[in-house]
Amino acid sequence: MNAQRGVKRNNVKKNLMLLTMVAPVAIWLILLRYIPMAGIVIAFKKYKVYTADPSLINNIVHSKWVGLGNFKFLFTSSDTLLVLRNTVGYNLLWIALGVVISVSFAIMLNEITSRFVAKTYQTMMFFPFFISWVVVSYFVMSLLDPTSGLIVKQQIANSGEATNWYHEYKPWPVILTICNLWKNMGYQTILYLAAITGIDKSQYEAASIDGASKAQQIWYVTIPNLRKMIIILLIMDVGKIFNSDFGLFFSVPQNSGTIFRTTQVLDTYVYRALMNSQNIGMSTAASLFQNTVGFILIMITNTVIRRIDPESSLF
């Protein structure tokens, strides 16, 4: 009670101090994010140069309004549903797998007795982070190439027949999932691992004094402590449900048309549609659409979470 009264007395001063703390980032956000945000109106305009006095602002101001016209191309294709299904489907699958696998990895790493080995594993898990999708695509191709791929050669040695990997759409959900997990698990694991490391150790002591087994300690101490991190990462992922990692879906399948059925996602669709037209209105519209959906989903998720567990919600 004393403490609270003390805090109240210094309320104004404290808030001022805290405001000075947020100031640097807030100023940066205004300059580099909020001011450029005015550019979003391009999504509703047919961007043309105002030849009398060209400048980005003049061009935007003097361009014609086209309402939602720039958004149309996202929905008029006969493939729209397929593209949306792939985008959302992969994201949902990977969000679920990602949480389960990376939390498990973090817990396992944490339980490995030899610190040296744990560190070595963890360092290795970070390498994919440095390897671009183009390089990954070389690697995948060295396995799947129709003439020289290792897996293809093995298949031929075994049965005399090989899968035509780059023209067969069925295996791609699996291949893409493996590639995605391979690349991102190290990153997510380290977040959870650091969160575990930050857990107040007295909680484990208390649990072990109460006679909790190791498994029980994980279940009753580690997981609840990770809850906040899991939920925050989930909320972030939900916001990106209409976005995909372009390099993964474009480079790894070698941009091969015959497998679009399982490799075409919104980002690649938009890229291919606008590849040559440089239509800044349509590309702005596409990302505005993705982000608006993401925003709405985050707001819903956040509201739901706030009802159940106000501590973990984003805001």
Binding site: R33, Y34, I35, P36, M37, A38, I40, G239, T284, G294
Partner: peptide
């Protein structure tokens, strides 16, 4: 204020 900019941006040219 921070979260909002994760989703919405003005695009490359204005930035």
């Amino acid at each position: 204020f921070a979260f909002f900019t994760m989703l919405f941006g003005g695009g490359l040219a204005p930035t």
